[in-house]
Amino acid sequence: MSPFAFALIFASIALQVGGQVFFKLAMNQTHAGRTARYVPALAAGVAAMTLSIMLWIGLMSKFPLSQLYPYEGIERVMIVASAALFLREKMTPRLLLGVALICGGLILVTAS
């Protein structure tokens, strides 16, 4: 994989993480009963997600799906960390064990 391909993969991951955080922010607003409040966050989330998916489709046409999937492990850690940092979600030991197991599984899949 070329450095350019790595750059595209990490751009896709960063956009995915940002998009998920925006989605959660938007959906939290829907409980407040102020309909218009969630639109900007939702739009930002959709924009980030769309770019991320476009990049991902392009990457899939160049590399086997199984070779790209391991990078989702990094994405998983980043999303859970972002949820704790930016959304102030509670991190339980079980949740962290879940992340560790999933990432461990992804490492095994990559190495195979």
Binding site: F23, M27, I79, A83, A84, E89
Partner: peptide, 11 residues
């Protein structure tokens, strides 16, 4: 996502 924390849902 309206009901589940992002960390849990993503896991």
């Amino acid at each position: 996502l309206r009901f589940v924390p992002l960390g849990v849902a993503y896991n």
